[in-house]
């Protein structure tokens, strides 16, 4: 009995020592150590969206190309699942963390864990304003998106003054919330009337199209001919709005954001869908990766932690030349 106990204890001690030896590797704070592979944790909550899925593939391919030791964590919009997984990976040690399309407001615990471990976070579209959480966050210029889409409506309607425009937003998405607010302010400043008196809110992105369809249908039923345009914060809901306009036989024009295949198809068809916006995700990711490689080389961090890049308005004139966001390679 005593021999068995001693044997078991010895085995347990040996296992503990082995585990301790395994977990002693890699820490944050520098741009990687000579022979060891550069260790990267990448996470996204939006992997079930077309752009999020593209980001996962693109980051994985880049990591393979550069010989990084990549841990990819896909959160399915479930922060309760994703955040602990990322924190656990941070506990194992890493050189860099990559955040794809996950707003800073949802990853407070990850930011704290990364700071404690001295690991910088490089992000794509993870906040609409500068934030110390990131060594770098590059996103699209929200004001630019609004200027382009409202400009398209302005041109089409012969001015915005006196026109009735519905703005459809979705508050939980930081980018959509910000640009919907900017659009509402700019419309008011241009002398347009907000349909319904305020930004119309879609409660769930999953049902955005049907919600927008109902919102616009009901408004047009109550106010036949009372809508000149619909500004929508993202294409899926914009497609629902355009369908409602078409079904009502109204003349209103609709703009969206994202440049999905379906939206581009709608624009090319010449119906109610007037324009959308292409956000240059591949070049944004390239810029982020370049910054990560500079950090890997000698520990250099970007001079600015936030960058908002210009976007491209997609209308009938250039729709055929745009790569849809859901077809990115």
């Amino acid at each position: 009995m005593r021999r068995k106990f001693i044997t078991l204890t010895a085995a347990a001690v040996a296992a503990a020592l082995m585990l301790a030896g395994c977990s002693g590797s890699s820490g944050g704070g520098t741009g990687g150590d000579g022979d060891k592979a550069f260790k990267v944790i990448a996470f996204t909550s939006g992997n079930q969206t077309p752009i999020g899925a593209w980001w996962v593939k693109a980051v994985t391919a880049k990591a393979d190309e550069l010989g990084w030791d990549l841990t990819m964590i896909q959160g399915d919009f479930d922060f309760q699942k994703m955040n602990p997984a990322v924190e656990s990976a941070i506990g194992q040690g890493a050189d860099v963390i990559l955040d794809g399309y996950t707003d800073v407001s949802s990853i407070g615990s990850i930011v704290t864990a990364a700071k404690d471990a001295g690991i910088p976070i490089f992000a794509v579209d993870s906040g609409t304003e500068a934030n110390d959480a990131f060594a770098l966050n590059i996103t699209a210029n929200q004001q630019g998106i609004v200027d382009e889409t409202l400009g398209a409506l302005d041109d089409q309607l012969g001015g915005l003054k006196g026109k009735t425009i519905m703005v459809i937003g979705h508050d939980p998405h930081a980018g959509i919330r910000m640009r919907a607010g900017l659009a509402a302010d700019d419309l008011a400043a241009a002398g347009a009337t907000l349909a319904g008196g305020a930004i119309q809110k879609v409660t769930s992105p999953a049902t955005g199209r049907t919600e927008a369809l109902a919102l616009v249908s009901d408004f047009l039923t109550a106010n036949p001919g009372g809508l000149d345009g619909v500004w929508v914060g993202w294409d899926d809901a914009a497609l629902g709005a355009a369908q409602a306009v078409t079904e009502a036989g109204a003349d209103a024009k609709v703009t969206g954001v994202d440049a999905t295949s379906e939206a581009i198809g709608g624009i090319e068809a010449g119906g109610a869908f007037l324009a959308t916006v292409e956000q240059p995700w591949p070049s944004i990711l390239d810029s982020v990766m370049t910054a990560v490689q500079a950090y890997q080389k000698d520990g250099t961090l970007p001079s600015s932690n936030f960058e908002a890049v210009d976007t491209t308005l997609v209308d009938k004139a250039n729709a055929a030349t745009i790569t849809p966001s859901d077809k990115l390679k």
Binding site: S204, A206, T207, R209, T210, L213, Q243
Partner: peptide
């Protein structure tokens, strides 16, 4: 809707 997505009828 003329389209299908994985979660479009969730509500």
């Amino acid at each position: 809707l003329g389209s299908a997505s994985a979660v479009q009828g969730d509500d």
